[in-house]
Design a protein around this nucleic acid. Structure first.
Length: 209
DNA sequence: TGCAAACCATAAC
DNA sequence: GTTATGGTTTGCA
């Protein structure tokens, strides 16, 4: 039996789905119902589940990790994610994405180089990521450092990235199972966004013609 | 810049 | 099987 829990903190609702001391899926949203529906959407069909009010000890630690990552912090300990039902390729992509450190981002094509497949295929896996933001798909952007997409909405992607800004200056290559993954400071993305905002502002202040 | 074509794993027929 | 569809990239005007 899969157990689903929903819990709020501040303005945000979090949801987790657990089974056998493993996390099956997580989600977060501004609305309770949306958060609950999102996790349930990730659950395998035809497997019974129930929504419970009081989180088990395991669920509580899952919430704790989830909230820490949402706040831009390192999770205190590694959570066991249930990935068995996913394709081998999806598992590899998610595992690779997990290696992007806080304060850094990578790109769809860089992840594709490290995990195999092509950039679009990587985007597809990200779109179906049941573990956001624990598997930090928000740290994957387009190769020109523009945002790309995000299931929870781009505002959320930006908010997460801002919270993770650590002031790194140099790119970094992190070791993954097969080779290396190129990562860049989040600031590359944030600076680009700010520059874009300036352009808009300048255009707005220009007299109409 | 902007558009078109190539790209690659899935989901849907 | 085949086709359609993306959280993309690259090349070429």
């Amino acid at each position: 039996m899969i157990e689903v829990y929903v819990q709020s903190q501040g303005e945000t609702w979090f949801a987790v789905a657990c089974q056998n001391q493993q996390i099956l899926a997580v989600s977060f949203a501004e609305d309770q119902k949306i958060a609950a529906n999102k996790v349930m959407g990730y659950l395998p069909l035809h497997v019974p589940f129930r929504v419970l009010a009081n989180p088990s000890a395991f669920a509580q630690s899952a919430f704790a990790s989830l909230k820490r990552v949402y706040d831009g912090e390192e999770p205190r300990f590694e959570m066991p994610l249930a990935t068995g039902h996913l394709t081998a390729y999806a598992q590899k992509v998610l595992k690779t994405t997990m290696k992007i450190p806080i304060g850094f981002i990578s790109t769809y094509s860089a992840v594709a180089e490290a995990a195999g497949g092509g950039p679009r295929a990587v985007g597809n896996i990200m779109a179906g990521n049941p573990f956001a933001p624990i598997v930090p798909c928000h740290r994957v952007v387009k190769s020109d450092f523009s945002l790309g997409g995000y299931g929870g909405g781009l505002r959320v992607k930006v908010a997460l990235l801002r919270k993770e800004s650590r002031g790194f200056a140099e790119p970094r290559r992190v070791r993954v199972t097969s080779g290396f993954l190129r990562c860049y400071p989040v600031e590359r993305v944030l600076e680009r966004l700010d520059a874009f905002a300036q352009t808009i502002k300048a255009a707005d202040s220009k007299p109409e013609r």
